[in-house]
Design a protein around this nucleic acid. Structure first.
Lengths: 156, 156
DNA sequence: ATGGATGCAAACCATTTGCAGTGTA
DNA sequence: TACACTGCAAATGGTTTGCATCCAT
């Protein structure tokens, strides 16, 4: 549901990024990326697997997983939400917002009155009834950005 | 790390909500809720389990899970992120925002230039380096709010 | 007293991993 | 040709479920 030009654009970006990173450009990887790049609705691994299997019947689910995490590592795709493994619970029912570390999943709360009252766009009202607004700032927490710096300095 | 008054406040709310819903007020449930209500860092089930076990050594992990989902159903706590089971991927690296259905996990994108440039509060800058901002409107999608209405009308 | 709640153990299911064979660079 | 990549199958680990027992109402 993404237009042809945008898809072609993303595919080119994918090819470049793989060469850049010295990662082999395989048929499987190309089709997995194409599948994610063409969809607008945040597919899970199983859905992507099914989609790609139409073109590569022999592909295995674990290759899909490995590829997705590779693409994520290359910065070509992202995962939705703060983290991937366990569910995390929250008893703070007051309006509040989050800083989320994309590396380790750490989530920290903060309050901000002006974010609490962001206006709901018309477009969103058509999607359903809105109960809460949450602003998420995503990046690296202090701990992980320190580690990242250390890793980069080894690469020189 | 939440102050005493706020905790007491939340505990009272918990007691009321259980009575209201006709749900039994057990020792286990009280302590599980207290554990979540006292923490500021979005604990996972295992962490809550460990914490509660200091007070109720015989409690089992599955009771913790059952209780957490019960509390979630009563609206006393929420889960962090869009949904709980599978990871979802996203190849849209342009800044964008989400409407998220808290019932079924459906996530829909929308663009909004003024949300892309929300200012990063000082408080947040101290938490780490920020790459992206995302605004999430959480509520019920059209499909789920229809189902909800149907369910409510049966309760009359 | 009695039906909902708990604890145990086994089941479930998404995701990961070891390994031998395969294909890209 | 060499080494990274893939597919298979088995392992892993968070979460759920069936069932007998227990306890809040």
């Amino acid at each position: 549901m993404v237009n042809k030009d945008e898809i072609r654009n993303r595919m080119d970006h994918f090819t470049d990024a793989c060469k850049q990173a010295g990662v082999k450009l395989t048929h499987q990887r190309t089709e997995v990326f194409r599948e994610v790049a063409s969809s607008r609705n945040h597919p899970d691994a199983e859905t992507i697997y099914t989609g790609v299997r139409a073109r590569i019947p022999s592909i295995s689910l674990d290759t899909v997983y490995r590829t997705l995490w590779l693409l994520n590592g290359l910065g070509l795709i992202t995962t939705l939400g703060p983290y991937r493994d366990r569910v995390r619970f929250d008893a703070n029912n007051n309006p509040h917002h989050h800083f989320i570390c994309v590396q380790c999943g750490m989530a920290e709360d903060f309050d901000n009155g002006s974010f609490d009252i962001l206006e709901i766009p018309e477009e969103v009202k058509k999607m359903g009834t809105v109960d809460t607004v949450q602003v998420s700032f995503r990046g690296l927490c202090l701990h992980c950005s320190k580690k990242e710096k250390r890793k980069n300095s080894l690469h020189i």
